[in-house]
Design a protein around this nucleic acid. Structure first.
Length: 887
DNA sequence: ACATCCCGCCAAGTG
DNA sequence: CACTTGGCGGGATGT
C-alpha cells in the first residue's frame, strides 16, 4: 500500500510542507521506492546534510555503496544526491567537476555521465569543457520545457502515441493479429517511426540562454541519451493525459527499424535507457511512476508531475524579437559550423565552447531571472501555477501585460487601419499563440482517460470560426488564450528561439527506409483514417514481432511510393555537414530527384543561404520549429474550424508543391522533418532566427528546390515547414508573382514573396516580430486581396518595415541575406525588443495563418482523424491507476 | 517469471 | 596514445 499511495502523499506533502529541500528529497526518495522510504530517515539525515555536508554524506554513501543494495545504488538516488549538492536556482554558475563529483558521490564516472546527459538535455547543466559542467539548475527548465513542448508538437508525438495505442488495442482484439496487415498499422507506424527515426536521430534542442556547448553538441553522434531524454520529455509535454507508458515511449523512441528482429532487442535496450532517464526525471520530480491498466494488463508508465505550463516560447508576438534574437540555433553538427554560427566572430577555432562574452551575458540574464524568480528551494513552484510561470521576472509580466493589451486592441481590431487586420482571423492567430502559452490552460486534461477522445473531438469539429472555448486538448487553439499568452512570454529569455538540430542520420543503416517513413507518416495518417480499416494490428506487437517489420516494409512499399519519393525529396536532408557546397549539392540532387537522399535523412533542407550558415542552420532549424508550430496550430485550427477531410486532402498537395515538384508528399515530409528535431539548443542570441525562418519560408515558396540547397547545407535544416505552409497558403496565390526570387528586395525587407509571405508572416507573427500589421499586409496580399490591401505590393515591403516598426530587417551577417543567390534572397530581420513589438505586434496577421492552414489542414485532419478513433480506443485503454496501488 | 536497471566492457571522440 | 564520453547489453536484483 504504501508505495502506491505515495503519489498522493507527495502531493499532500508538498502542499503541506514544501519548505525544505529536504522534504523534497524525502518525497522523491519515497517515491522511488518503499524501501528507500523506510530508510528515508537515514537518508534524510544525509539529505539534510547534503547541502552543507556533501562530504560527510558522500563519504557515508560511498562507504555504504558497496553494501548498499541495488536500490540504494540506483541512478535515481544517486541523482538525488547529486542534486542535493546544488541549488535549484543557482545564482552564479556553479562549476561541476566530474571527477570531484564522482569521487564525492562515490560512484563510477560512468554513472555521472548518465545523470549529466539527462540534465544536459534539460539544460540544467551544460558542458563547459572536458571534465567540467556548469550547473544551471532549474533556471532554464521552464524555457527548455516550453521549447521541448513545441518540438514535440512539431513531431506530432501526440498522434504517434495515439496510433501506437490504437495499435495495441487492436492487437488485443486480435482478430487479425496474425495478419499483418500492413496497412493500418504498418503504415502508421512507419510514418511515425520513420520520421522519428530519421529525425530523431539526432536532434538536440538547445536553449537560448544556455550556451551551447558546441562540443558536447557536436561531437558524437551520440547524444542518444540526451536526445532520447528530450524526446521522452516531449512525450509528456505533448500528451494529453500526461501519462506515458514505457512501452509507448520506447516504441516511439525507437526509430523505425525495419527489422523486426531487432526490434525486440532494441526495444529492450530502449527500455533500459528509458528507465535510466526516468530515474533521473523522477529525482527531478518531473515525473512519477504509475501503472496504466489496459485491457491487457498493467503497464508501467510515468506521469508528468512537472510544471504544466511552460512559458511561452514566445514565438508569438510577445517577445518575439528579443527572444528570437536571443536564441539561436546551433546546429549543425559540425563543430566548426557550430562555432562559426555561434560566434560570428571569427573566433574560430575554439569557439565551441562558447564565447565567454556570450556566456556571460546569458548568465547575467539568467541570474537576473533567478533573482527575480527567486525560487525558493521548495518545489512549490512547480505546481502549476499559472501560466505565467516561474521564471519570468516581473519585467516579463509587464511585457506580457503590454502585449496583452496590444493584442486586445488588435483583436478588437479597432484599427481598421490595417486592412489586414480585417480578418477575423486575426484573432485566431493570436489564439494560437495564446494557447501556446498562456493558455496553458493547461491542457486540459489530465485525466487520462478521456482526454484523448474528448479533446480531439472538440477540436476538430467545433470551432469554426472562432474558437470557442473548448480548448482543445491541444493547447493551442483556443483563441481565448491569446491575450494571456503574451503574458507568459517571457521575453527573450524565455525563449526564444530554439534551434533544433537535426543530425544527419546517422548511418543508420537499419532502417533506411527512412525517407519513406517520414513521408509516409503523414500520409499514413490520412490514409489511416480513411483507409485503415482495421487492420489489425499487426503493428500491435509492435516492437517485438518481426511481423512488424514485414509490415513496415510492406507498408512502405504500398504506401506509396509517392510518399516515399516525396519524402525523400523533402527530407532531403539536411545534413549536418557544414559544408555548404556539399549540402547544396545534395539538396539539389535531392530536390531534383526527389529523394534519394535518404541516407541522410535529415529531414529538411534548409534554406539557409550560405551566409546563414553562419547563423546557421540552427537558425533555420529554429525557424522550422516555429513554422511547424505555426503550422500545427493552423492545422489544429483548421481542423476545428473546418472540415477535416478537406484539409487533409488539400493540404498535402499544396505543400508538396513548393518543394519538390513532383512529390506530393513533400509537405508531409517536411512535416516530418520538422518533427524530429533532435536536441534542442537554445539559440543564443541570434537575431537572425526570425529572419531565417522567414526566408526559408519564402524560399520554399519559391519552390525551387534551390532554396533547399541553400538552406540546407548549413544548418540543416528545416525547411519543411516552410514548405508546407507555403504551398498551401497559396490558394490565393495571388501574387504569384511573388516569386520569391523576385523579391529579393522584399526579402530584404523581410518580406517574402508572395507565396511565402504568408509563411513569413506567419512566422513572424509567431515570433512576435511582426506586428499584425505587417503581417497582415503580407498575408493579405497573398490571400486575399490584392486589391484591398494596402497595397500589397509596394506596401508590403514598406509595410513590413513600418509596421514592423518593430521589425527591422537587417542582414545578419554581412552578407547574407540578400544574396541568396540563386534565388533566394535571404533576409535577416532583427527584431527589436519585444517591447517594440509588443505594442503593435499583437496583431497577427491572421490571414496568413489562416491561409496557411489550408495546407496544414490536411495534416490536421489527419491528426484528427487518426486521433479520433484511436483516441477513443486509447482512452478506454488507459486507466491510470496512479501508481501502484497495491491491492 | 518478469520488471527494473546496475555494471562495466569497449568503442568513439578528444586532446 | 591516453583519457574522456557514453552506447550497449549481460545479467543481477527486486517483486
Amino acid at each position: 500500500m504504501g508505495p502506491l499511495t505515495t503519489p498522493t502523499k507527495r502531493r499532500d506533502v508538498r502542499s503541506v510542507d514544501p519548505w525544505t529541500p529536504t522534504s523534497n528529497l524525502k518525497m522523491l526518495i519515497s517515491a522511488a521506492s518503499p524501501d528507500i522510504r523506510n530508510r528515508e530517515k537515514e537518508l534524510c539525515l544525509d539529505h539534510e546534510g547534503v547541502e552543507s555536508l556533501d562530504a560527510s554524506q558522500e563519504s557515508k554513501l560511498g562507504e555504504d555503496a558497496e553494501k548498499l543494495s541495488r536500490k540504494e545504488k540506483s541512478l535515481g538516488l544517486l541523482c538525488h544526491r547529486f542534486l542535493a549538492r546544488y541549488p535549484d536556482y543557482p545564482g552564479p554558475a556553479h562549476d561541476i567537476c566530474l571527477d570531484d563529483v564522482a569521487t564525492q558521490l562515490n560512484v563510477e564516472r560512468r554513472r555521472i555521465y548518465d545523470i549529466m546527459n539527462v540534465l544536459e538535455s534539460l539544460h540544467m547543466v551544460s558542458r563547459l569543457v572536458k571534465n567540467r559542467y556548469t550547473w544551471h539548475g532549474r533556471s532554464k527548465l521552464a524555457q527548455t520545457l516550453a521549447v521541448l513542448r513545441r518540438a514535440g508538437e512539431g513531431q506530432r508525438y501526440r498522434q504517434q502515441m495515439q496510433h501506437i495505442r490504437q495499435r495495441c488495442a487492436e492487437k488485443e482484439f486480435d482478430f487479425d493479429d496474425g495478419e499483418e496487415k500492413e496497412n493500418d498499422e504498418t503504415l502508421p507506424p512507419a510514418d511515425l517511426e520513420g520520421p522519428e527515426l530519421g529525425q530523431k536521430e539526432m536532434s538536440f534542442v538547445e536553449l537560448p540562454g544556455v550556451e551551447f556547448n558546441a562540443v558536447s553538441v557536436n561531437s558524437r553522434k551520440d547524444k542518444s541519451l540526451r536526445v532520447m531524454s528530450q524526446k521522452f520529455v516531449m512525450l509528456f509535454l505533448v500528451s494529453d493525459p500526461n501519462v506515458v507508458s514505457l512501452e509507448v515511449a520506447a516504441k516511439i523512441l525507437i526509430g523505425e527499424d525495419p527489422a523486426a528482429d531487432q526490434d525486440k532487442n532494441k526495444f529492450k535496450t530502449k527500455v533500459r535507457r528509458l528507465y535510466d532517464i526516468a530515474n533521473v526525471l523522477q529525482s527531478l520530480k518531473l515525473i512519477e511512476k504509475v501503472h496504466v491498466t489496459e485491457e491487457r494488463g498493467r503497464k508501467t508508465a510515468f506521469k508528468w508531475t512537472g510544471p504544466a505550463e511552460l512559458p511561452t516560447i514566445e514565438e508569438p508576438q510577445s517577445c518575439p524579437a528579443a527572444c528570437r534574437q536571443a536564441s539561436r540555433v546551433s546546429e549543425p553538427v559540425t563543430k566548426e559550423t557550430c562555432s562559426k554560427n555561434l560566434f560570428s566572430s571569427p573566433g574560430g577555432k575554439r569557439g565551441f565552447t562558447r564565447h565567454p562574452s556570450l556566456i556571460k551575458m546569458a548568465k547575467s540574464i539568467q541570474e537576473d531571472r533567478r533573482k527575480i524568480n527567486s525560487a525558493p528551494t521548495s518545489p512549490a513552484k512547480s505546481a502549476l501555477g499559472d501560466s505565467s510561470n516561474q521564471d519570468f521576472p516581473s519585467k516579463m509580466a509587464q511585457l506580457a501585460a503590454i502585449c496583452k493589451i496590444k493584442l486586445d486592441q488588435q483583436s478588437s481590431r479597432a484599427k481598421g487601419s490595417r486592412p489586414g487586420s480585417s480578418d477575423p482571423g486575426a484573432n485566431k492567430p493570436e489564439t494560437h499563440r495564446g494557447k501556446a502559452r498562456g493558455q496553458r490552460e493547461e491542457m486540459p486534461v489530465r485525466t487520462p482517460t478521456q482526454e484523448p477522445a474528448a479533446c480531439t473531438t472538440p477540436h476538430l469539429t467545433p470551432r469554426p470560426p472562432q474558437q470557442p472555448a473548448p480548448p482543445s486538448s491541444i493547447s493551442y487553439l483556443p483563441a481565448g488564450g491569446s491575450p494571456l499568452i503574451p503574458v507568459l512570454l517571457p521575453q527573450q529569455h524565455s525563449g526564444g528561439p530554439y534551434a533544433v538540430f537535426l543530425h544527419a542520420l546517422r548511418p543508420n543503416p537499419l532502417s533506411r527506409p527512412k525517407p519513406t517513413s517520414l513521408a509516409v507518416r503523414s500520409m499514413t495518417f490520412e490514409e489511416k483514417t480513411g483507409l485503415s480499416p482495421g487492420p489489425p494490428g499487426p503493428g500491435a506487437p509492435l516492437d517485438l514481432s518481426p511481423s512488424a517489420t514485414k509490415r513496415l516494409s510492406s507498408d512502405t512499399a504500398s504506401d506509396g511510393s509517392p510518399s516515399k519519393a516525396k519524402r525523400v525529396g523533402a527530407a532531403g536532408h539536411q545534413d549536418t555537414s557544414p559544408r555548404q557546397g556539399e549540402a547544396l549539392h545534395v539538396a539539389r540532387l535531392k530536390a531534383r530527384r526527389g529523394g534519394p537522399a535518404s541516407s541522410r535523412p535529415s529531414s529538411r533542407a534548409l534554406h539557409l543561404d550560405p551566409e546563414f550558415v553562419n547563423t546557421p542552420g540552427g537558425a533555420a532549424a529554429v525557424a522550422h520549429q516555429f513554422l511547424e508550430e505555426s503550422v500545427e496550430t493552423f492545422l489544429e485550427t483548421e481542423e476545428r474550424g473546418g472540415s477535416d477531410s478537406e484539409a487533409g486532402l488539400t493540404p498535402v498537395p499544396a505543400r508538396a508543391v513548393p518543394l519538390t515538384p513532383g512529390h506530393l508528399n513533400t509537405g508531409h515530409l517536411n512535416t516530418e522533418t520538422l518533427v524530429p528535431a533532435g536536441y534542442l539548443i537554445p539559440m543564443h542570441s541570434l537575431v537572425g532566427y526570425k529572419d531565417m525562418q522567414v526566408q526559408g519560408g519564402e524560399n520554399k515558396k519559391s519552390t525551387t528546390p534551390t532554396y533547399n540547397i541553400y538552406h540546407t547545407p548549413t544548418a540543416g535544416s528545416r525547411p519543411p515547414h516552410a514548405l508546407e505552409i507555403t504551398p498551401t497558403g497559396l490558394p490565393r496565390p495571388r501574387p504569384a508573382g511573388l516569386s520569391p526570387q523576385t523579391a529579393p528586395a522584399y526579402r530584404a525587407h523581410m518580406q517574402s514573396p508572395g507565396p511565402s509571405p504568408a509563411i513569413f508572416n506567419f512566422t513572424l507573427q509567431n515570433l512576435g516580430l511582426i506586428s499584425a500589421g505587417p503581417g497582415s499586409a503580407g498575408a493579405q496580399q497573398q490571400h486575399q486581396t490584392p486589391e484591398r490591401g494596402p497595397g500589397p505590393g509596394a506596401s508590403p515591403l514598406l509595410g513590413v518595415h513600418q509596421r514592423g516598426g518593430v521589425l527591422f530587417v537587417k542582414p545578419l551577417s554581412s552578407t547574407p541575406l540578400q544574396q541568396a543567390g540563386p534565388g533566394q534572397p535571404l533576409t535577416f530581420i532583427s527584431v527589436q525588443q519585444p517591447m517594440m513589438t509588443t505594442p503593435k505586434g499583437a496583431g497577427q496577421p491572421q490571414h496568413s495563418f489562416f491561409h496557411t492552414p489550408g495546407p496544414l489542414s490536411p495534416l490536421a485532419a489527419m491528426a484528427t482523424h487518426g486521433g479520433h478513433a484511436p483516441a477513443s480506443a486509447t482512452q478506454r485503454k488507459l486507466d491510470v491507476s496512479t501508481q501502484d496501488s497495491p491491492p
